[in-house]
Design a binder for these strands. Sequence first.
DNA 1: TATATATTTAGATAAATATCTAAATATTAA
DNA 2: TTAATATTTAGATATTTATCTAAATATATA
Lengths: 84, 84
Amino acid sequence: MNALFKSLSDPTRREILQLLKDTDLTAGDIASHFDISKPSISHHLDLLKRSGLVSVRRDGQFLYYSINTTILEDLMQWVMNLKH
Amino acid sequence: MNALFKSLSDPTRREILQLLKDTDLTAGDIASHFDISKPSISHHLDLLKRSGLVSVRRDGQFLYYSINTTILEDLMQWVMNLKH
DNA sequence: TATATATTTAGATAAATATCTAAATATTAA
DNA sequence: TTAATATTTAGATATTTATCTAAATATATA
């Protein structure tokens, strides 16, 4: 749960999730949307992966990232619980 | 929105919110639940306040903190939007 | 097989954050 | 008005995090 919150606490990572909302993208596609180096984006993707917010599959040279909304249920539950 | 996510990214602050779920508490009451100095807790409370997650009222010498769940609607919306 | 492309990993650095102690402020009570 | 209590503010420090460049790994293609 901490990894999830930590993951969502960075604006770049939240924007990555927005990009992945509509379609799966390669690491390069994602990186090209930001004015940040590829290794940095790769690091953000790694954190998103570790927290369960994205998953990745290889297609040849490319790594396709996709959003995983299942884990967001936990967040919803946490929020609901806090609201009583 | 960033302040909200940042606020929720720290485990101590999330635990503070859990404490405030049931009842309003003074800064001292909150601090006594943790093995962290009062100034540090005061700092966490300040961040929670700035993000809109808690509000505070004075009663004599005491400052009572209470949870504000209204702002959590924004978070719910953000999550829902991400899920489409 | 050698080279090009896509991406990550490693290692360093700078910025942000959590924490501490000491001092300041606000209120109450003697 | 002085002393006690509650809490914050100030300033310093250590840890975490975001970022960078350079090097390594994986796959595809000439």
